[in-house]
Design a protein around this nucleic acid. Sequence first.
DNA 1: ACCCAGGGTCGTC
DNA 2: GACGACCCTGGG
Length: 287
Amino acid sequence: MEQEYVIENANSFEPKQVFECGQCFRWNEETDGSYTGVFGKNVLNVKKEANNIYIKGICDGDIKEICTEYFDLNRDYEEIKEKLSKVDENVATSIAYGSGIRLLNQDLWETLISFIISANNNIPRIKKIIERLSKEYGSPIEWGENIYYTFPSVGQLRNVTVEEFREAGLGFRDKYVADAVRKVVSKEANLEDMYKIESTEILRQKLMEFNGVGEKVADCVLLFSNLKRLDSFPVDVWVRRVMGELYFPGIEEKNIDKKEIQNLAKEKYKNLAGIAQQYLFYWKREA
DNA sequence: ACCCAGGGTCGTC
DNA sequence: GACGACCCTGGG
């Protein structure tokens, strides 16, 4: 049954920014400017009018609880923006540009697989592949006249062959995803245990034990999944570009050491580096 | 037609 | 630590 939830005075919640800042792949814009997406066993539509957020859809539980968790509603983004704006003029500008960005609390398994697929790939194609996997192996959810599909669970992928992943369009990442499924099924890797690990660095190493997960993918999973390591600072081509322009003037992009970028980020943005990354990423990509 | 880049990682040297 | 290969797709 359809449920509804309204967030009033939502200053730090702009659907376009939340869903297009690169953290998620399953939210799509509707003709009216609202966004519809699938996460867990939920299908929701999110629309902003005046300064309110109107959410409706099919929920696997209480919509308010589910939204509070997923949309990170208990975190004070006003305070975060205030803190980060003080770092320097550059960040302040990027925050003014994407002041409605929030970090979603996404399922760890889905985030892990999604970002393995993201390697050396572009966003439209990543979205297509994930949609195809969901349709092929996920579970259907009916809402109105449409059928949506959940992201496939470990169990739903356990018998999928490398060849079948290749057919789904994963390209050379087919073997990585198949191996991740195998590791979790065989309990060689345990995702639940990862929540118990305190050190972001150790957790990062743990994630990198998955084939196809290097530093960048691990950092994205740390930041964008419900592991919620806000101190993680993924450096991709866009972030490298913007950080190079802002803090390493005159040096050619490819010559900037990635470690140096991350050290600088940690020093400047401290434990909010990941959120700063999102403001900078969105700013550079959109503007 | 051709090349290039895309939220990189891996194997090899 | 550097370097090329890698599936595939869209855009110049």
